[in-house]
Write a protein that binds this DNA or RNA. Sequence first.
DNA 1: GTAAGTTTGTTGATATATCAATAATTGGCA
DNA 2: TGCCAATTATTGATATATCAACAAACTTAC
Lengths: 145, 145
Amino acid sequence: MREKNIDEVYLFQLEKAFKQFRKYKNGIFKERGIDITSDQWILLKRIHEEEGINQTDLARKAFKEPASVTRILDIMQKKGLVERHVVADNRREYQLFTSAEGKKLVEKLLPLAREIRATGTAGFTKTEVDQLHRLLERVFYNFNQ
Amino acid sequence: MREKNIDEVYLFQLEKAFKQFRKYKNGIFKERGIDITSDQWILLKRIHEEEGINQTDLARKAFKEPASVTRILDIMQKKGLVERHVVADNRREYQLFTSAEGKKLVEKLLPLAREIRATGTAGFTKTEVDQLHRLLERVFYNFNQ
DNA sequence: GTAAGTTTGTTGATATATCAATAATTGGCA
DNA sequence: TGCCAATTATTGATATATCAACAAACTTAC
């Protein structure tokens, strides 16, 4: 049997879709003059959803490595978007909070994020979006065994 | 309307599936003692499919930036997996070839790659794999406008 | 109460992604 | 022919991913 050409491989399509999404998102931020990256936005939104979260939990929930989270937070802290607060009864960890500026940015970006999600599934029925979601969950599950 | 929690967002699931796939693949290579990364393998396989391809075409077909291709090839060239040949009638570009060692590695990895693809869609019907592929194509298309 | 193990976060090294700038070469065209 | 534009590859800067090693703080078991 002939080896599949890589174009036909669903995993290559998965990679293409993800990369194109990231490019699109970064492009939208840039074109609106918003100085934030796709990954910084993920963390900012997460912290906003759960103010006071620590880095380990943040990493797990955002599906990032703790080391990456450390570095992305360093950048966002320099930009004044987030704050690390020491915890009274535990000197190992930080509680993370969005700054006032961070909160403003979240409010600005939430509708944009909604638009971006809608763009990706333009022309999809609700059923198709669910189908895609469930199929991706199963792929994730299969690779997570 | 409440803002969607990021877990529910299909785009987050897309990212998770892709990252988990990459981790799984890198893990398999590592566990078999094969000194190659997921991305190096993509390029190696592509060159093997089209010996003599130049970097621009390789970048387009592998869906990578030319700058990334330059650097990944540098690494693979050092490892002795690929060769850059000068072209007689065009001193700007190189023709890329897999080395003898590169070819051996391709033969070793092709069945592994097939297994990895199968792992990702374990429990899928053929229809579901096609469905996933087509849905991803449409997401890509939507973000590529 | 202390030693051993665990948790939390950081850092270093390496690989890849992206954008911008650049060098070298080639092609088109007046 | 000679200049300008396009092509090909590289490099620099910055951001992120991954793994390993580590330090500090905390927890557990004895």
